[in-house]
Design a protein around this nucleic acid. Structure first.
Lengths: 311, 311
DNA sequence: GCACCACATATCATCTGAGGTATGCAGATT
DNA sequence: AATCTGCATACCTCAGATGATATGTGGTGC
C-alpha cells in the first residue's frame, strides 16, 4: 500500500475545497466552478489535482465536455454536503449568538429597579429578540454583588456595598428611588393629602429588617425630622407577609415606588393605595454594575442597552 | 455591526481547529489539549485566540484551573462533533475505496474464462472484500472489446480482435483453452476412450455459428486431419438450446472445457458427460486485456490480481 | 486540417498559517 | 511572601497554500 502520503486525507480537506468539489459536481465544469469560487481555472485545476493526489485516486472523470464524479468523487461530495451544511449551521448560529439575537442573559436587581427598570427592558428585548433567554434574579445588593463577582450575573442593578473595591466594577447611576407607603383603602390616612411623618408614628408598620436600604431610608427620614422611629414595627422582607398584613390590618408598608405602584395600580387587582406624603422618602441610589474586566456578550449588551433606554 | 472581519468565520475553521476545540472542551485544559494535538501550549493558545477573534466572541471562559466553554463555545463544539464525525466517515470510506476494499468492478469475459477464471477470482475477492460490487459481463470478444473501449468494462478476458490497434491495450495471455464435447450419458460414444474425430463425423452436432472461436477451433481440428466438417449441424450459441438438444437427443455439443466441466461435474446435477478425445481440440488463446491509458482503480486491481492467481 | 473548447501544466510572487522558544501575567496554594 | 499552575503575548521561522499569467494537450466539430 502506498500509504504515508494519504496519512490524513480528510483533515487537510478544508471547507473551501469541499465547496469547490460540490461546485464542480453541480456545474460539471471546472471553469464555471472556478469562476463561482472567484478563482482562475488553473487554480481550481491545481486544487483539484492536489485533493485527488491526497485522496489517492481521481474524484472526477475528465470528459471532453466537462467532468463527472467517479465513485470516490461521489462519495466525497456526499459527505461534503453534510459537512458544509453543518458548517453553515454553525456559522449561522454563531452569528446569531455574537450579534445578540440569541443567547443567555442573567441579570440581577433589587426589588425597585427589578420592577421599574429590568422588567420593561426584558419585555422590550423579548419583543425584539425572542430567542434570548433571560434570567432575572432579585435579591439584596450584597447577594447581587456577590453573584456578579462569582459570574452568576452578567450585570446587576443594586446599591454599592461598601466592602467592595469599586475599581473592580463599571458603575452607572440608575434613577433615584423613592419610597411609597402602602396601606389598604380602609386605612384612616388613605386619601389624605400631605401626610406628615409625625402622623405615621403611631400606626402599625411592616418593614424590612435593618440594614435594608428601605428600612434605612425610612429611619433616616424620621431622624432628619428629629423624630423617633415608629415603635410598632413588624420586621419582614417577605412580600407575602406584607400583603397579608396589609389586607387584614391598617398596617403601613413602605416599598419602593415602583413596587408600590405595581401593587396599587397594576393589573393584579390588589386593593391597596399609596399614602400621599408631604415630603418624599429617598432611598440611597442604585447603580447599574458590571464587572469591569468581563466584557458583556452581545445578548447581555442588548439587555443592558434596553435598561438604559428605560432610565 | 462590526462585520467584515467575520465574513466567513466557519469557512476558515479547519478540521484541526475543530479538533482542538473539542480537546480543550474534553480536558478542560489548554495544555493537555495542546500536547494531545502534538503542539506547544502557546501555539494552541494562539490558534484559540484566532478562532475566537473570528468568531466574534470568547469560546471558553478562562478559569484559574482551566477552561470551560461559553455558550458560543458549546455551540461550536456541538457542531464540531458532527463535522468531525463526518470527516472521519469520509476518510474511512475513501480509504476503503482507494485501498480496494470496496468499489465497483466491471469485468467482461468470453464463456470459457468467465467460468474458469473470472468466477473463481470473483469468489476469492468476494471472500476477502465483501463490499466490492462486481459485475461480470459475458459476450463475444468483439462485444467485450467494444465495451472495454467504451469504458464499460474495467478489464476483459477475450480473444484479440484483428481490427483493433493492440497498442491501445495492455495484454496478458490467459491460459490456453481446449474444447470439450458434451453428450448425454446414453450417447453411444459416452464412456469410450480415445474417440477420433472421424468417428464423430456422422453424429448430430450443435455448435455456435461461425465465426465463433469454438466453431473455428472445431472446424480447424477436422481440417487438420483432412476431414470434412460434420454435416449434420444445428447452429446455436444459446446454452438453452444446447441443453435442450443434449437432454433429448444424441447430439454432440462442443463447449470450452471449463463450461463443459461445470455442466458435467458441477453441482447442478446436469446429467452430461465429456467425450474422451484422442487429441484435444485447441481454441485460439484468450488474453487479459485492459485499456493501456486508463489506470485501474483499486477494486479492479484487486480482482485482476485474483484473476492472475487463478491462471 | 483547423479552430475551438475544456482541462492540465509551468512558473513565479505572495502570504497565510502553523510551529517553535522565551517570557509575562494572574489566580491559587502553601 | 513565595511558588506553582495555566493561559497569554512577543517574536521569529518556514512550509505550504493561494493566485495570476502563459502555455500545453487532447478531444470535438466544421
Amino acid at each position: 500500500m502506498i500509504c504515508g502520503a494519504a496519512m490524513d486525507f480528510a483533515n487537510r480537506l478544508r471547507p473551501s475545497h469541499l465547496a469547490l468539489l460540490m461546485r464542480i459536481a453541480e456545474t460539471g465544469q471546472l471553469q464555471r466552478a472556478a469562476q463561482m469560487a472567484a478563482m482562475s481555472q488553473p487554480a481550481a485545476s491545481r486544487v483539484l489535482a492536489e485533493i485527488e493526489a491526497r485522496a489517492g485516486g481521481a474524484l472526477f472523470e475528465r470528459h471532453p465536455k466537462g467532468m463527472r464524479p467517479t465513485a470516490l468523487g461521489a462519495l466525497c461530495i456526499r459527505h461534503a454536503k453534510v459537512i458544509l451544511e453543518e458548517y453553515g449551521a454553525l456559522e449561522e448560529e454563531a452569528r446569531r449568538v455574537t450579534s445578540g439575537e440569541t443567547g443567555r442573559v442573567r441579570v440581577g436587581a433589587v426589588t425597585g429597579p427589578a420592577v421599574g427598570l429590568v422588567m420593561p427592558a426584558v419585555r422590550q428585548v423579548r419583543a425584539e429578540a425572542p430567542d434570548i433567554e433571560m434570567t432575572i434574579g432579585v435579591g439584596t445588593s450584597n447577594e447581587l454583588v456577590r453573584g456578579l463577582v462569582d459570574g452568576h450575573y452578567d450585570f446587576i442593578i443594586a446599591r454599592l456595598p461598601p466592602n467592595h473595591d469599586s475599581r473592580d466594577f463599571r458603575l452607572h447611576p440608575a434613577r433615584n428611588e423613592t419610597v411609597s407607603l402602602l396601606v389598604r383603602p380602609q386605612h384612616p390616612l388613605a386619601g389624605r393629602r400631605e401626610v406628615t411623618l409625625a402622623e405615621l408614628l403611631e400606626h402599625e408598620w411592616v418593614v424590612q429588617e435593618l440594614p435594608s436600604p428601605i428600612r434605612q431610608a425610612v429611619e433616616a427620614a424620621f431622624h432628619s425630622q428629629t423624630l423617633d422611629t415608629p415603635p410598632r414595627v413588624t420586621n419582614s422582607s417577605s412580600l407575602l407577609v406584607v400583603l397579608a398584613l396589609l389586607e387584614s390590618t391598617d398596617t403601613i408598608a413602605p416599598q419602593t415606588r415602583e413596587v408600590a405602584q405595581m401593587l396599587a395600580h397594576g393589573a393584579l387587582g390588589a386593593k391597596l393605595v399609596e399614602l400621599h406624603l408631604a415630603e418624599p422618602i429617598m432611598v440611597s441610589p442604585c447603580f447599574i454594575i458590571q464587572n469591569r474586566f468581563r466584557p458583556l456578550h452581545s445578548a447581555a449588551e442588548r439587555l443592558l442597552r434596553a435598561v438604559f433606554d428605560h432610565l
